[in-house]
Design a protein around this nucleic acid. Structure first.
Lengths: 349, 349
DNA sequence: GCTGGCACTCGGTAGAATCGAGTGCTAACA
DNA sequence: TGTTAGCACTCGATTCTACCGAGTGCCAGC
């Protein structure tokens, strides 16, 4: 994994240039300052003088890996520079303390899936001090275990549907006729007969009669299947959004990023887009939203029994600590998969 | 309502001082700058010279209503100054455009309660450009309409409980013995018999037998009633958290406030504390959290059929536009109450 | 091809000068 | 007695200057 999935076939730099580039990137990540030739020359184990480093740097700048904020300042990495750095990163290893922290967390966490995912996002955020995103997959493919119509009053019913992945969704109905308990119970029975074992994608033969029971059944199926097109099944949990405030300098950047995070749909599509492109890191402009041009996003898919079940992600500045972030996201995603795939085989998404 | 609920019995200022104080507060809210005596003298309809205003100002400062950032700058209001200002505020009226916006929203909004509340928080935030908080009350007092135990697999069951307020909660069970469909269905029947009509606060006589059905029933009741002590029934929806970023200047303030917002429990307790003290506005130190010392919070209770059902709130800087904020929060809370109390009598909290 | 040397650039910082909004005080006035 | 005009004073903000120094690009020599 020293080379990430579909890394762009960046014409490989020669060894020295690569060393210099990596030195610049890691020092800039540490200090948030432009990096000069002399500190590179002294820091790394390249036995060359600053002058040589400098001439390599102009070359790296011509090739688009580095940029200088202004003449006579050091260099800072471009998105392309970060990309090269990330593509050539060794797999980081989590510190024992952090591993322990994750293990402890998953050993002691309890509650419903949503609670676990919520808390996981907080954990990940605390570990990395970046904003964490946990996405739970949709239940599009889960089959229905139970569909119950509950009579709230004569004009309000609640359709409660339980899926094989343990998720529950509800829909309200407000028919224009009065419904007594008997009618409701009968509709409930018919819905169960009709829906159990199907998925949201299955076609269902609804009764065409015009009595109240049939109408209730038809309405219920309709409102349930209407769920599908919105693709709204995913759940998003965002942990540590306050971390945005210390990841970026300008208040307006903070505002923009928070604003993106507020639109959860955007976040989901971002993460899913990355996964479908096989990316685990998106840097600056790579993630497609202008306001995120100074952000980097790290994602790790959560795979249970071979099927994609969600993802965990981290959002930080482009100068984020990629190795730590990737290691943390990877470890947490694996623990999540084990947690839901292992002892709780079906209580997951 | 020109005087708010239990306004501190602030020894009333004489008319001129009050006018001056109000002028200072409103100008400072507008400009975010210290206000000088001359602008007060010219702005308001007090026919006195700046010199007179000045001498009144030193008096107001001695009494704690004003402060000066440094010698030879204008005055800014203290929390006490804002308090006086708010206590003597006329009831603001929403602009017709905003009223229309609210009406349109509630006319077109649909979906489950949670969705409505979520979108309401966004609406309120957009209208005011402050961060909005919508709190839905707990279902502690709602009675149980249905309790169903669904068999996910032999070792995992899901208890799905529907309340009379239309809310649904789920709990997983993981018994150590195998459960077949028949056992599960029987337990479900017994649970229904046992729980329907009770509330989470009711004592329930569970079977003492030791067969699997009885164990399932006992476990279910236990896990359900365990919900209670956490008082976790409230739902919190926060809209426009990115607005924090343009309400405050310092990045660290932004961080602190976001951090508070992340801890939803804190937010809930803050709002409830304010309601129980009969406050509709908390200014700076009044809201009890040090990081919120530069914040003001406006809340309006949502009352349905005479019983408290939640609250809507707005969080902004102490120099927020109180009149607008209070008007908006009040209007939205009323619309919410009507929305859930009127045509959907029971589909609410 | 590498390196030391060197002139040059230019952002950042420090200090001085200045500006001006706003104050507090006092003496005069109604 | 309350109000006001006048005035000296304060002090943050702004501007300007000088200057430092980190870092560069280039070149000549090794």
């Amino acid at each position: 994994m020293a080379r990430r999935a579909n890394a762009p076939a960046s014409a490989d730099l020669d060894v020295r240039k690569a060393t210099i580039l990596e030195a610049v990137v890691s020092e800039h990540i540490d200090t948030n300052q432009p990096v000069g030739s002399s500190s590179v020359a002294s820091s790394a184990d390249i036995g060359v003088s600053p002058a040589t480093v400098r001439s390599e740097m102009v070359s790296l700048e011509r090739e688009g890996y580095l940029a200088q904020p202004h003449t006579s300042a050091g260099r800072i990495p471009t998105d392309k520079g970060y990309r090269y750095f990330v593509d050539h990163l060794e797999n980081g290893v989590l510190g024992p303390a952090q591993q322990q922290q994750i293990s402890d967390f998953f050993a002691s966490v309890r509650g419903e899936v949503e609670d676990v995912l919520e808390q996981t996002s907080t954990l990940l955020s605390q570990m990395t001090s970046y904003t964490a995103v946990v996405v739970g997959a949709t239940h599009a493919h889960a089959s229905i275990l139970s569909a119950q119509l509950v009579n709230i009053d004569a004009h309000h019913q609640l359709l409660v549907t339980v899926f094989s992945d343990g998720s529950v969704i509800k829909h309200s109905l407000a028919p224009h006729f009065e419904v007594d308990h008997e009618t409701c119970a009968e509709a409930s029975r018919q819905l169960n007969a009709l829906l159990i074992g199907t998925t949201l994608e299955s076609a269902v033969q609804v009764p065409s009669r015009s009595d109240h029971v049939a109408q209730l059944v038809r309405d219920s199926v309709a409102v349930l299947h209407a769920q599908q097109p919105t693709a709204d099944g995913e759940q998003v949990f965002i942990g540590g959004s306050s971390r945005v405030a210390d990841s970026f300098d300008g208040v307006d950047t903070v505002r923009k990023v928070l604003s993106i995070l507020e639109q959860e749909l955007l976040v989901v599509s971002l993460v899913q887009d990355m996964l479908s492109r096989g990316l685990s890191v998106a840097i600056g402009s790579e993630n497609g939203f202008e306001p995120l041009s100074t952000c980097a996003v790290v994602v790790a898919p959560v795979t249970i029994d071979g099927t994609p079940a969600g993802a965990v992600g981290l959002l930080g500045p482009t100068r984020m600590k990629y190795q730590e972030a990737m290691a943390a996201a990877g470890a947490v995603s694996q623990h999540l998969a084990r947690h839901f795939g292992g002892d709780e085989e079906h209580a997951n998404h």
